[in-house]
Design a binder for these strands. Structure first.
Lengths: 108, 108
DNA sequence: ATTATATATAACCAAAAGGTTATACGTTGG
DNA sequence: CCAACGTATAACCTTTTGGTTATATATAAT
């Protein structure tokens, strides 16, 4: 199974995703948007490529990266499903206090 | 803000969460369900506590852990929001298959 | 052809993550 | 009180992660 949690688990990668949500970008453009080096960005891109959340098209000397929306959708669906399952079981009582915006027991 | 991705990023933690979905458990019970040491489990519990995904109530020498459903609800909402934004931006048709739970074009 | 530009990769490093064992602490039962 | 049990913490180890710099490769432009 692909480890979607790994791909989304890093803030830089999530920011890249958010950027690519707006428009496709070359690696150079992405690099310029961050304060870290080109190889560092490339590694993040490689992770996202491995998980198939983005893909790249070659354009001369450029690599144009774009979101794989369906895969990103799957990734989030999987997470939502995980959480959702947890919530379903006790959703009735949860709904109640969520709406009231109050906790039932103390916190550390 | 809490980093839900960090918390969910580890398989052991996800399993703990799944277990706590069924019922609250003492640390001892949780430890016995895994093949790793008590301190290792404790570290995972600490991560989940930090992210406020679980909470613990003291009962004598026991610590009873239980899910913080409202926090999971928040995580769920956050993720939905992220995806929703994504869909709004680019792809109305994607919304369709998300709701129907099926793809519209082939995938690797 | 040579140079400039965009990307890829190699080698390295520090810090974080996930585990271990040993041990201290807190509570309860005999 | 003391022993046993559940939990917490300290010290340590290894692997992974996220970063670095230096350099190689591929395409474009002059």
């Amino acid at each position: 199974m692909s480890d979607i949690y790994r791909a989304l688990g890093d803030a830089t990668r999530r920011r890249i995703i958010t950027m690519l949500k707006e428009r496709s970008m070359t690696q150079k453009e992405i690099v310029e948007a961050f304060d870290i080096s080109q190889p560092a960005i490339k590694k993040h891109l490689n992770v996202l490529l491995e998980e198939k959340i983005i893909s790249a098209t070659v354009q001369g000397k450029y690599r144009l990266y774009n979101l794989n929306l369906d895969m990103l959708q799957r990734a989030y669906n999987e997470m939502l499903h995980f959480i959702g399952e947890l919530l379903d079981d006790q959703l009735a009582s949860l709904k109640n206090y969520v709406e009231k915006g109050e906790m039932q027991d103390g916190e550390s």
